[in-house]
Amino acid sequence: MTDAPAPRRGRTGIVAAVALTALLAIYVWLVALRAVQLIGTGRGIGIALGVALLVAPLLVLVLIAREWLLALDVQRMADELAADDELPVDDLPRSPSGRIDRAAARAAFAPHREQVEADPGDWRRWYRLAFAYDAAGDRSRARAALRTASRLHRGKGASGDLP
């Protein structure tokens, strides 16, 4: 008996993320190359523009690294939860088009928020809260909750504030 192949959707997402990161890396490299050339002109405006163009690629690299590190930790957390049979289950009612019923998502959200308020130091609760936020359509708070879960998972503590 052979193992079932991984879902195609998951592989497609990783391939797309790696491809986009590679394209962005090429773009950043080209911008940095032009920045060095501008600095090499020796003129005040060329140096100023070159320095400004060097800051942008460095900022992009930091932001990309931050997102990849978060993605890796979110996967580690999901693996741990799956191993303990605690992975959040998406059993919310959906419309015929597949959209989550927002009223049901908001109703299901409250218990997750209460669990985090009761124990804000538990990354597992923050992880589940993130997916409750996502189901309710609040992507920015979902991301903030995932970042908090990641900090706690890595042992760096939480801010204590709910997003």
Rank of each mutant, 00 (worst) to 15 (best):
D3A: 11
A6E: 15
P7C: 09
R8T: 11
G13P: 11
V18Q: 11
L20P: 12
W29R: 15
A32H: 04
V36R: 13
I39P: 01
G44Y: 00
G46H: 06
G50W: 05
L53R: 08
L53M: 11
V55H: 01
V55Y: 06
V55R: 03
P57Y: 13
R66V: 08
R66C: 02
L69I: 13
L69P: 04
L72F: 14
D73I: 15
R76P: 05
M77L: 10
L81V: 09
L81R: 09
E86K: 15
P88Q: 07
P88A: 09
L92F: 12
S95C: 01
G98W: 03
A104T: 05
R106D: 15
H112I: 01
E114F: 00
V116A: 04
E117K: 02
E117T: 03
A118V: 01
G121W: 00
W123Q: 05
R124C: 02
R124I: 10
R124K: 12
Y133C: 10
Y133H: 08
G137I: 12
G137Q: 13
G137T: 14
D138A: 09
S140G: 00
A142K: 11
A142T: 11
A144N: 02
L146H: 14
S150P: 05
H153I: 09
K156R: 08
A158W: 10
S159F: 00
